[in-house]
Simulated assay, not measured.
Amino acid sequence: MATQAPPISLTVETERKPECIIVHLRGRLVSGVCSFLYNKVHCLIPDTKHIILDFTELEWVDSMGLGTLVRLYVASKSAGVKLQLINLGPKVKELLGLTNLLGIFAEMGEKGFTHF
């Protein structure tokens, strides 16, 4: 009996603009896909001074996903790159608030949480 591969829970599309790189996330940022996202975004850091993570179609983030966002924040900040989160859904925004991470990402200003 063949085993089925688990469904892919996250897709990532990159959109390059002159002033920034927008990373569109779709699905669930959960254990098992976090290193994929980290590697995909981390390699963009040398190419820009502004990375936007668009959460419009992101349904959920678990604790591993939160850790990945913090790792990306630290790597970006260390390189002088602005990491911005936009279009947070209510579940994701609540989770960031409950874990006191909303304040860390809010350092970018309230514009970080609006539509782009």
Rank of each mutant, 00 (worst) to 15 (best):
M108A: 03
I45M: 02
F36T: 12
K17S: 05
F105E: 13
L37F: 15
L37S: 12
L69P: 09
G112E: 05
A2P: 11
L44R: 02
K77L: 07
K49R: 14
G27E: 10
K40F: 02
E110S: 13
G67Q: 05
F36G: 10
E15Y: 02
T114S: 14
S63A: 14
G103A: 00
E110M: 15
S78V: 09
G103M: 00
V30S: 02
G97M: 10
L83H: 08
T3I: 13
F105T: 10
A75P: 12
A75M: 13
S31T: 13
V74K: 12
G80P: 13
I21F: 11
L44Y: 00
E110Q: 14
G109L: 08
N100V: 08
R26A: 14
I8V: 11
I86N: 06
P18Q: 03
N100D: 12
I86H: 08
T48R: 01
G97S: 14
E59V: 11
F113I: 11
H42Y: 09
E110D: 14
T11K: 15
E19R: 01
P46V: 01
C34D: 15
E57T: 09
L53S: 02
L95W: 01
R16P: 04
L96W: 03
L58I: 06
L37Y: 07
E15L: 00
L83N: 06
E59N: 13
K77P: 08
R71K: 05
A5N: 15
V74E: 14
E19L: 01
E15A: 01
L102A: 09
E94V: 07
V81H: 00
L10A: 12
F116H: 10
G32S: 04
K17P: 01
W60A: 00
I104S: 05
Q84Y: 03
C43D: 07
P90C: 09
W60E: 00
E15T: 00
K77F: 06
D62P: 03
P90V: 14
V81P: 01
G103W: 02
K77N: 11
K17D: 01
G89S: 10
P18R: 01
C20N: 09
P7N: 08
G65P: 09
V30M: 05
S35T: 08
M1P: 15
T114R: 12
G32I: 03
E110K: 12
F55I: 09
P46K: 03
Q84D: 04
I45L: 05
M108Q: 02
S9Y: 01
S9L: 06
S31M: 15
G27W: 10
I104H: 04
C34F: 11
Y73A: 04
L29Q: 02
V12I: 15
A2D: 11
V12R: 12
P90L: 13
F36A: 07
Q84R: 06
H115Q: 08
V92M: 00
L69N: 13
G65A: 07
G80H: 09
I52E: 01
F105G: 12
